[in-house]
C-alpha cells in the first residue's frame, strides 16, 4: 500500500518519541490498543498545573506506519494547547492531515483515543472534574 508523503515523513522522522515520568503528578499517560490489528500506542502529556497547557508530549507506538504517523502528529498538535483545546482534536482531523485511506482509519482512531486517555489520566491524578466540553465555549 502506498503511504502519503506526510505519513512517510512522520514515519521516518517521528517527532517526540519517548517517555515521560509516569509517576509525576503533572504527567498523564494513555495506553490504548486497536483490537482490529493488535497494535498498541502509548501517549503521554506533561501539563502545566496553573494554565492547563500541555507543555510536552511523548509517544511510543508499536504498530503500522499510519499508527506511528498518527501518534507523532498527535503529539505535535497537542503541544502548546490547553487540555480543553486538545480534546477537540478528532481522528477525522488526523485522517485529513495525513490523507489516510479508509483501511487505515482505525489507526487514527487509536491516536484520538490515546489523547483522550492521557488527558483522562491526568485529570484523575489531579482531581480535575470540570466538564471540558467538546467545543471550546464561545465568549459571551
Amino acid at each position: 500500500m502506498a503511504y502519503s508523503d506526510k505519513v512517510v515523513d512522520h514515519y521516518e522522522n517521528p517527532r517526540n518519541v519517548g517517555t515521560l515520568d509516569k509517576s509525576s503528578e503533572s504527567v498523564g499517560t494513555g495506553l490504548v490498543g486497536a483490537p482490529e490489528c493488535g497494535d498498541v500506542m502509548r501517549l503521554q502529556i506533561r501539563v502545566n498545573p496553573e494554565t492547563h497547557v500541555i507543555e510536552d508530549a511523548k509517544f511510543k507506538t508499536f504498530g503500522c506506519g499510519s499508527a506511528i504517523a498518527s501518534s507523532s502528529l498527535a503529539t505535535e498538535w497537542v503541544k502548546g494547547k490547553t487540555i480543553a483545546e486538545a480534546l477537540t482534536i478528532t481522528n477525522t482531523d488526523i485522517v485529513k492531515e495525513l490523507a489516510l485511506p479508509p483501511v487505515k482509519i482505525h489507526c487514527s482512531v487509536l491516536a484520538e483515543d490515546a489523547i483522550r486517555a492521557a488527558i483522562g489520566d491526568w485529570k484523575k491524578k489531579n482531581h480535575v472534574t470540570e466538564e471540558v466540553g467538546v467545543a471550546v465555549a464561545a465568549a459571551h
Binding site: V32, G33, L87, T90, E112, D113, R116, A117, G120, E131, V132, G133, V134
Partner: peptide, 9 residues
C-alpha cells in the same frame, strides 16, 4: 468524544 467520558478499551 461527545460525552467526555473515557472510552472503555
Amino acid at each position: 468524544r461527545t460525552t467526555g467520558v473515557a472510552k472503555k478499551q
